[in-house]
């Protein structure tokens, strides 16, 4: 790797591919995250976000390509790379029989943070995520939002300067989600830290520095949210035609503007002048019409031709369900 005067970027991903059986989870993904950036990976379920994060945090090997954390190859220097990373996995990884503080303390021990510093950081991070009052509660008794906050705090107990968050807000209510984002924002003001976050909530990535849109293991676009909206967003008309004749007529007439079809609706690229012209022309052929202002949603729609898909259940659900039901005392 060519070393300039500037330090290596926090994250560099170079033509990474990874296959699971027949599924090509990652297909030549490349990008670079800049220093202190707030970087979002946006993609539907199965896009390959988690796979990419697992490669970055050294628990999964890529089939080909290279991933560098501050210039450290995650395959050849995993231990050194891990020291720089703070990770919040998509699925909880707390010991729910330990207390909040014990979970943090264990993390500090495991990462070799000396005693006095460990205790000070635990207090600071508990304060940051507002869990100080819960420090001596068993983790099992926390709400899922609190567990998420605890995991974020935990990722910051050691010298992490790159925070990887895999869907930190998935499954949480609006209030908890907003809280988590506010902690991350505050943290970025206080500590020299680069944040890479994955999500499939489009509205959440508006505040990021740059968004990387991935689908089916490929990078579709990467830019600041505003730029993405300008270049790919565009205004769109969502039209539901009255009948099949009307549908054919509209499709025939505006084939060059067609962006896609979603159920009954037809999506057409549009602007203010076009709306007027369209109404004058085909006003009687439509049942309903919505003007979609440029948003990341329309960017996504434009790039993939479909909306973000829904969630599905995990694999070893049976064993987990058993454990969750109270399972055996062995848990």
């Amino acid at each position: 790797m060519a070393e300039g005067t500037a330090p290596a970027p926090p994250i560099r991903v170079d033509a990474i591919s990874r296959r699971f059986g027949r599924t090509l989870a990652l297909d030549g993904v490349s990008f670079e995250v800049r220093d202190r950036e707030f970087f979002a990976l946006l993609g539907p379920n199965g896009a390959g976000k988690t796979t990419l994060l697992h490669i970055l945090c050294t628990v999964l090997r890529p089939d080909s390509g290279q991933a560098l954390i501050r210039g450290l190859d995650v395959v050849r220097q995993p231990l050194a790379a891990r020291r720089l990373l703070g990770i919040v996995f998509q699925e909880a990884s707390l010991d729910d029989r330990l207390t909040v503080r014990e979970n943090l303390d264990l993390h500090g021990l495991v990462f070799g943070v000396p005693g006095a510093l460990r205790r000070r950081r635990i207090d600071e991070m508990l304060a940051l995520v507002e869990l100080t009052a819960w420090a001596d509660r068993t983790t099992r008794t926390l709400s899922s939002g609190m567990k998420r906050r605890l995991e974020i705090a935990r990722a910051l107990i050691h010298d992490s300067e790159i925070l990887l968050l895999d869907e930190p807000t998935a499954g949480l209510d609006a209030q908890s989600r907003e809280r988590i984002w506010s902690y991350i924002r505050r943290l970025r003001g206080e500590r020299h830290i680069t944040v890479l976050v994955t999500t499939h909530y489009i509205e959440e990535v508006e505040g990021c520095d740059r968004v990387c849109i991935v689908d089916r293991g490929r990078v579709l676009a990467l830019d600041a949210p505003e730029t993405l909206k300008r270049t790919h967003g565009g205004q769109m008309l969502r039209i539901v035609p009255r009948g099949d004749d009307d549908r054919r007529a509209i499709l025939g007439r505006f084939a060059d503007r067609l962006k896609g079809e979603a159920g009954d609706a037809i999506l057409l690229a549009s602007d203010d002048a076009f709306v007027e012209a369209f109404l004058a022309d085909c006003g009687r052929r439509i049942r309903s019409m919505t003007v979609e202002i440029p948003s990341l949603e329309t960017v996504f729609l434009t790039l993939t031709g479909r909306a973000l898909r829904d969630q599905s259940a995990g694999e070893s659900e049976r064993t987990r369900a058993f454990g969750r039901r109270g399972g055996e005392h062995t848990r």
Partner: peptide
């Protein structure tokens, strides 16, 4: 088995 299924193992696997 529980460490593996409930993710705690991952936390340890990304440690030094």
């Amino acid at each position: 088995i529980w460490d593996r299924e409930f993710g705690f193992l991952r936390e340890v696997l990304v440690s030094p």
